[in-house]
Computed example of a mutant assay.
Amino acid sequence: MPKKIESTALKVWRLVINIVRWILYILIALVLAYVAYKAWEYKDEYEKENEAKILKKEQAIKFEDFKKNLTTYIPLLVGNPSADLIRRDNGKFILSYMLGSDIEAFQEAFKESAPIVYVGNHVLGVGCKKSDCDESDAAFVVDPAASKVYLAMNLAGKLTYYGLEDGMPIPLAFEEWRGYPKAKTQ
């Protein structure tokens, strides 16, 4: 009888060892699957970030090209309505690049526009919201000599400039537009 008990205990021990071994195999397989999933997820995120960087770089190059193009032909638009600039394809791209999510408000502020004019060596275009110029108005200044474009928008008394670098003075053409010496820059 002791031999049979020993053999039953041995069988139980082997069964336990086999169960533990299979549990370890399953755990190792799950860990490997998790590691593979995380590697795939990281690769996917890395590719998306890389694509976003490439797109941003391409847009910056396109912006610089369109800006140079705009500063070349803007003197030909003097006398035309200011809204003509934002209707042109390269004008739309320049605005969307500089304004981001504020582009709709800027376009709304150009529903009524004055003719494009020279102010010194800058070109100024102004517009305002249809039937409510006090609520929303906007302007753009183009410096053809420096190939620079500046935008300004006044929404309910809050004036914001776009395209100005830190510490850079506000172009005098904006003074002609609103007479505001200081405002928030973006």
Rank of each mutant, 00 (worst) to 15 (best):
L55Q: 14
K184I: 15
T71D: 02
D84T: 08
A146D: 09
Y25W: 13
K48E: 07
A9R: 12
P81S: 11
A139T: 03
A138P: 02
L172N: 12
K43V: 08
K182E: 02
K57Y: 14
K67P: 03
L99D: 00
I103C: 01
V78F: 15
A33S: 05
P169S: 12
L15P: 05
V149D: 00
F140C: 01
Y73F: 09
V31Y: 07
E135S: 09
L24C: 08
K148M: 13
K48D: 02
V117Q: 01
I28Q: 04
P81D: 07
E176A: 08
I26A: 07
S136H: 06
I23A: 15
Q59Y: 11
Y42Q: 06
A52N: 13
V141H: 01
Y118V: 06
L15A: 14
A9C: 11
P115W: 08
P144V: 04
D134V: 09
L85V: 12
P115A: 09
Y25E: 07
K56H: 12
D89G: 04
V16G: 06
L95N: 09
P81V: 14
S101P: 04
V119L: 02
V117L: 05
S147D: 12
I61P: 01
L151S: 00
V35Y: 11
V12R: 10
K56M: 11
S147H: 14
L76R: 15
Y118A: 04
E108I: 11
P144C: 06
K3R: 13
I28G: 06
A83Q: 11
A83P: 04
E176Q: 12
G157P: 02
I19P: 04
V142H: 00
V117M: 03
V119R: 06
D84L: 10
A138I: 01
N90C: 03
N154F: 11
D166F: 11
G163N: 04
E58G: 13
A146K: 13
R88F: 08
S136W: 14
V142W: 02
F66C: 06
K3L: 05
T8F: 14
F110E: 01
Q107R: 14
W13E: 08
T71P: 01
K56G: 14
Y150S: 00
K57M: 11
L151V: 01
K62Y: 05
K184G: 12
Q59K: 12
P169Q: 09
V149T: 10
K56L: 09
V142M: 02
D134K: 08
Q186V: 10
I54N: 08
K4A: 10
